[in-house]
Amino acid sequence: MFSLVFYLFVTNTYCQEIENCKCKSRNFKLIKKEGLQIDTTLVKINGIYIFKDSIIDLKNIKRDRYSFCRFFENGRVFFSCGYFNFPHESDLNNLSYGYYGEYKIIKNQIIIESYSSYVGYILELYKIEGLKIISTDFAKRSNKPKFEKVFSSIEYDFYKFKL
């Protein structure tokens, strides 16, 4: 349960920071340290991966919330903040409503490094299963990161879009 709460805290924190942080790059070390390793047959760059969850709003009404991640062939990844409708094409190309990270692929796993001023640099592991990516572990960035299993996996489904 801690993992899911931690993830939701980090995601909401990132989205609250957007107005304060317009920069698109940070001092990421993942690709610099181990080199660019991207297999676009495993991670698709011709669309987006959507995560759908539900929240209870202030009027005590259950609402669907969508967020997406978009991978680029240069090792960057973009995570959107939440939308209360399925994102439109204009949303998919608005790369200012979210946060950036860098990624690499080892076998059938994606390692993503991202940043928040509240928690610092974070490493996240996702397993690739067909057209889905599923969160499995996370850790604070360090020379020897100690990964923890996520309690409740976050699952993104691929949707092909003309971007």
Rank of each mutant, 00 (worst) to 15 (best):
M1Y: 11
S3V: 01
S3H: 04
V5C: 09
V5S: 13
Y7R: 07
F9Y: 13
V10C: 08
T11H: 15
N12M: 12
T13A: 11
T13F: 06
Y14E: 11
C15H: 09
E17N: 10
N20R: 15
C21N: 14
C23H: 09
K24D: 12
R26F: 09
R26Q: 11
N27G: 09
N27K: 15
F28N: 02
K29A: 00
L30W: 04
I31N: 11
I31Q: 06
K32I: 00
K32Q: 08
K33V: 00
K33Y: 00
E34W: 03
G35Q: 04
L36V: 08
I38C: 01
K44N: 13
N46H: 11
G47N: 11
Y49H: 03
Y49A: 01
Y49K: 02
I50E: 01
F51T: 00
F51H: 12
D53A: 02
S54Q: 14
D57H: 09
L58Q: 15
L58R: 14
K59S: 13
K62Y: 03
R65N: 10
S67Q: 12
F68V: 04
F68R: 04
F71H: 04
F72E: 08
E73L: 04
N74V: 02
G75R: 02
G75Y: 08
V77C: 08
V77E: 04
F78Q: 03
C81Q: 08
G82N: 15
F84E: 15
F84N: 14
N85G: 02
F86C: 05
F86S: 03
H88E: 15
E89N: 12
N93K: 15
Y97I: 06
G98S: 09
Y99R: 03
G101L: 03
G101Y: 10
N108Q: 13
N108H: 13
Q109H: 14
I110W: 02
I112M: 08
I112Q: 01
S116Q: 08
V119E: 07
V119P: 00
G120F: 07
Y121V: 04
Y121H: 07
Y121T: 05
I122F: 04
L123H: 07
Y126A: 00
K127I: 13
I128Q: 02
I128G: 01
I128S: 05
G130L: 10
G130W: 12
L131M: 07
L131C: 03
L131A: 03
I133F: 06
I134N: 05
S135C: 05
S135I: 01
T136R: 00
F138A: 01
A139R: 00
K140F: 12
K140L: 10
K140I: 05
R141K: 14
R141E: 07
S142L: 03
K144M: 10
K144A: 11
K149D: 01
F151N: 09
F151S: 06
F151Q: 03
S152A: 14
S152L: 15
S153P: 15
I154H: 02
I154S: 04
I154P: 07
I154W: 08
Y156T: 01
Y159V: 14
Y159C: 02
Y159N: 06
K160L: 13
K160G: 07
K160V: 10
K162L: 10
K162V: 08
